[in-house]
């Protein structure tokens, strides 16, 4: 809940119209991003991403499971987001559930490429151990600790960082004598395989306030939005998923325009994230 007076609303609108927002940013500037990896030692991979005052933690756990009968050659990935009441008192009890599931579904759309998983940013077939029998189940758990707008982008960035931090244990498989036997899997404690994260997209949300659209809106700016388009783009500039939120309708040409802007902004974001990941990894090595 953001309480804004009429004057404050005018200030936000006017600032965006003049390309100088309340915190001094331009319309297409992100807030400073800080990245920390390996924050949850018990997980296979984890990351904490701070985007201004927005603060999220993502942890990735890999468990052995059975592939679904529809896709015997693919592993499973599930994304769960939880909005902690520390972020806002409104999330107390079941208050955060609606937002949590909205975010979870939007992220699944961006990362997992629909039911068939064909357009997934994560290569699901790399999670398979024995086709039709054993695979890795990847559980991506996100936790919103502090919320100051643009949760989707922050969570997507955190997932990308956590995936690059994730090590999947190496396995030795004993197939057994007959093909019907459940194969025996020996999980190594020492050797880990890194993911190929080059195809993992980032999400850029363009929020329309008045006649203009901005990236990385704060909570105050989000409260003034008419509609928002979240575009997930990978390193090659391919669009992996799209979500439009907010009530007001958008002209199709404006949407196309927003997508091309998002594509442009995302390339900057990816390079910033890459350097932050490298810096965070170097930090851990030093320790």
């Amino acid at each position: 809940m953001v309480g804004l007076s009429t004057g404050e609303k005018h200030f936000i609108h006017g600032g965006i119209a003049q390309d100088l927002r309340s915190d001094g940013r331009k319309r297409l500037h992100f807030r400073p991003i800080s990245v920390e990896t390996g924050v949850i030692p018990q997980a296979n991979g984890s990351a904490r991403v701070r985007l201004g005052a927005t603060d999220v933690i993502v942890s990735i756990k890999a468990e052995l499971g059975k592939p679904s009968s529809f896709q015997p050659d693919k592993g499973k990935v599930a994304i769960f987001i939880d909005c902690s009441p520390t972020a806002a008192p409104e999330f107390e009890g079941r208050g955060g559930e609606v937002l949590s599931s909205e975010l979870s579904v939007a992220l699944e759309r961006c990362f997992l490429g629909g039911k068939t998983g064909t357009g997934a940013g994560i290569d699901l077939s790399s999670l398979i151990i024995v086709e039709g029998k054993v695979c890795w189940d990847l559980y991506i758990d996100g936790l919103v600790i502090s919320s100051d707008g643009n949760l989707l982008d922050a969570l997507a960035a955190a997932i990308k960082v956590a995936l690059s931090n994730t090590g999947i244990p190496k396995v030795n498989v004993d197939l057994g004598a007959s093909p019907n036997d459940q194969p025996e899997v020996d999980v190594s404690d020492e050797e880990f395989l890194q993911f190929d994260t080059s195809g993992v997209p980032v999400v850029v949300t363009l929020t329309k306030v008045g006649r203009h659209y901005i990236v990385d809106a704060t909570l105050e700016e989000e409260s003034q939005m008419s509609s928002a388009v979240s575009v997930s783009v990978n390193r090659h500039g391919h669009i992996c998923g799209l979500t439009k939120r907010g009530g007001a309708g958008l002209d199709p040409s404006v949407i196309l325009d927003m997508i091309s802007v998002a594509k442009h902004v995302s390339q900057n974001l990816i390079s910033v994230l890459d350097s932050e990941i490298a810096a965070a990894e170097a930090n851990i090595d030093e320790r």
Binding site: I40, S59, K61, F80, S84, P85, E92, R94, Y139, D141
Partner: peptide
């Protein structure tokens, strides 16, 4: 006061219902 545990807080991952 409200106490909540993150899904990833324990060794084996569980999805716990709130409350």
């Amino acid at each position: 006061c409200e106490y909540s545990m993150a899904n990833f807080s324990t060794g084996d991952r569980r999805r716990k219902p709130k409350g």
